[in-house]
Write a protein that binds this DNA or RNA. Structure first.
Length: 134
DNA sequence: GCCAACGTTGGC
DNA sequence: GCCAACGTTGGC
């Protein structure tokens, strides 16, 4: 089981939208590093759902329910996507500020590389954030 | 709204 | 294959 963090700008696709649809195609990723991370996802992997720009906080958890496959919205056929399904919201969203203020979370990929939209999360980071969000 | 970081494009 | 120019993302 691996853990990830996926970002969305809430005005394009928010946690509320995700809850309404439950299962969605995580399409539109056009970055090789992010796409490679999606390629490495297995069924059942858990992902934090992060709101970028507005909010800047982790708001919920989704689960990979379909493995990496071609993204039809990419006409060049270079990129793929996965399907994700709502697991549950965090009781208390965990903000970027909290992450930055936490010594244990300083090595997170999103801190080091803020533009990466699909990033790995270690088991330690995952559990630490879960505790913050409960 | 600004700007740093970073990815992509295109000329050479 | 290098690198300057340009575009985009995302935090502040």
């Amino acid at each position: 089981m691996n853990y990830w963090l996926i970002k969305s700008e809430p005005y394009k696709w928010s946690w509320d939208d995700q809850v309404k649809d439950s299962v969605t195609e995580w399409d539109g990723v056009r970055n090789y590093q992010a796409a490679n991370n999606m390629k490495a996802m297995a069924l059942g992997d858990q992902c934090f759902f992060y709101h970028s720009n507005e909010g800047k906080e982790i708001v919920g958890i989704v689960e990979v329910v379909k493995k990496y496959y071609p993204d039809p919205s990419d006409e060049k056929g270079r990129f793929g996507m996965v399907d994700v399904k709502v697991v549950k919201p965090l009781k208390a969203p965990v903000t970027l500020k909290q992450i930055k203020d936490t010594p244990e979370l300083q090595d997170m990929a999103i801190i080091r590389q803020s533009r990466l939209s699909v990033a790995p999360v270690t088991i330690d980071e995952w559990e630490f954030i879960l505790n913050l969000g409960t």
